[in-house]
Simulated assay, not measured.
Amino acid sequence: MATVLVPLAQGCEELEAVTIIDLLRRAGIEVISAGLDDQPVRASRGTVLIPDTDLDSALQQEFDMLVLPGGLPGADHLDKDPRIQSLVKAMATKDKYIAAICAAPKVLVSSGVLENKKATAYPGVLDALGRAAEAEAVVQDGKVITSRGPGTAMDFALKLIEVLVGKAKCDEVEAGLVR
């Protein structure tokens, strides 16, 4: 079974976090949500999320994919966390999937993972870091997958399902969503 880690930082975008976790679980993927500390996470619009565990505990296991939800200041908290930076670099070294949406691709820029890779993000995020952003809703370049924002969260999550467990399972999950 594929395993995915979704770190949840204070101020994350709840629509992205919940959509990613929900759709991947519908596909039978083991998803672990981990707070940067052991507190409930107050997301960017005030929704309180209760992570499955804390990041230090989650880091005791291996994952097939790391998915970083965006939102501000959540993406800034992820970017400044040395454990997240180390994890992003380790996942890249191990040739594992790394995905980020909205403002979270900034973490991939600062970790060096987006070097020579196509990517997208919330409008202006990559530009502010001296990077051009692709216009597509979801961009995959090798094992790095990025997406633009809350409005693309469902397409992003479906792409993650497709790369982890295949097109047939992705189609099955999408059919159940009645899009």
Rank of each mutant, 00 (worst) to 15 (best):
A104E: 05
V48M: 12
V4T: 06
L55W: 06
A103N: 02
A119R: 07
V139M: 12
V4C: 09
H77W: 11
I50A: 14
A168Y: 13
M65G: 06
V178D: 13
H77N: 15
L164W: 07
D127L: 14
C12W: 01
T120V: 08
R148K: 10
V48A: 09
L126V: 06
G28E: 05
A90P: 06
L164S: 08
A58E: 00
D37V: 10
K117E: 09
R25H: 09
A17C: 02
G130A: 09
D52A: 11
V88H: 01
A99W: 05
A58I: 03
I145Y: 00
K167P: 10
D38R: 13
F156V: 08
V138D: 07
A103K: 00
S44F: 08
E115I: 13
D76P: 10
A27I: 03
L177W: 10
R25D: 07
G112N: 09
M154T: 15
V163H: 03
E16H: 05
V113S: 01
V4L: 07
A132W: 12
G149I: 04
A9G: 07
V125P: 05
V18I: 14
L177A: 10
E30Q: 14
A90Y: 08
I161P: 06
L160R: 01
G46A: 09
S57P: 10
V6I: 11
Q61I: 14
S147F: 04
K169W: 13
A157T: 05
G166Y: 11
L23G: 04
A43S: 11
T3G: 13
L49C: 03
D56Y: 12
A132Q: 15
G74N: 02
G142A: 07
T152S: 08
D64W: 07
P150L: 07
S111A: 06
P150E: 07
R42L: 12
R83E: 04
C102K: 04
A58Y: 01
G28L: 05
T53Q: 02
R179G: 14
V173G: 05
I84Y: 03
L36D: 00
N116I: 12
S33H: 04
G149E: 01
E174F: 12
A103E: 03
L126M: 06
D127K: 15
A128Y: 11
L129A: 08
E30F: 13
A168C: 12
C170E: 15
M65W: 03
A168K: 15
D64H: 10
M154S: 11
L126C: 04
V4H: 02
